[in-house]
Deep mutational scan, measured.
Amino acid sequence: GATAVSEWTEYKTADGKTYYYNNRTLESTFEKPQELK
């Protein structure tokens, strides 16, 4: 079976905060997504 690849990509803001962006739902969040835990 195919492994589900996380759609979340980790980015940093200009002031160094980490956030996560989902390229399928176009959602962004500062909290670590469930799929990455």
Rank of each mutant, 00 (worst) to 15 (best):
G1F: 12
G1L: 13
G1W: 09
G1A: 13
G1P: 14
A2G: 14
A2I: 14
T3C: 10
T3A: 13
T3W: 04
T3E: 15
A4D: 12
A4I: 12
A4Y: 04
A4Q: 13
V5H: 12
V5A: 13
V5R: 10
S6M: 10
S6H: 09
S6N: 11
S6D: 10
S6P: 11
E7A: 07
E7K: 03
E7N: 07
E7I: 06
W8G: 01
W8N: 00
W8E: 00
T9P: 01
T9L: 09
T9G: 06
T9Y: 08
T9R: 08
T9S: 11
E10D: 03
E10N: 01
E10A: 05
E10G: 01
Y11V: 10
Y11D: 03
Y11G: 07
Y11W: 07
T13E: 03
T13M: 06
T13F: 03
T13P: 01
T13G: 08
A14P: 12
A14Y: 03
A14K: 10
A14L: 09
A14H: 08
A14M: 08
D15H: 04
D15I: 02
G16Y: 01
G16W: 00
K17Q: 10
K17I: 14
K17L: 11
T18Y: 09
T18V: 11
T18H: 06
T18Q: 04
Y19V: 10
Y19H: 05
Y19T: 03
Y19W: 09
Y19S: 03
Y20V: 00
Y20R: 00
Y20F: 05
Y20W: 15
Y20A: 00
Y20Q: 00
Y21K: 08
N22P: 01
N22E: 01
N22T: 00
N23A: 11
N23Y: 09
R24W: 10
R24E: 08
R24L: 14
T25V: 01
T25D: 01
T25H: 01
T25L: 03
T25A: 01
L26N: 15
L26E: 11
L26T: 08
L26K: 15
E27R: 04
E27S: 04
E27P: 00
S28G: 09
S28N: 05
S28Y: 15
S28R: 12
S28T: 15
S28A: 13
T29L: 04
F30K: 04
F30N: 06
F30H: 06
E31G: 03
E31I: 13
E31W: 04
E31Q: 09
E31M: 06
E31A: 07
E31S: 09
E31H: 07
K32S: 04
K32D: 04
K32E: 08
K32M: 14
K32Q: 09
K32V: 11
P33H: 02
Q34W: 10
Q34M: 12
Q34V: 12
Q34Y: 10
Q34T: 11
Q34R: 10
E35A: 13
E35P: 05
L36I: 10
L36K: 06
K37E: 13
K37R: 13
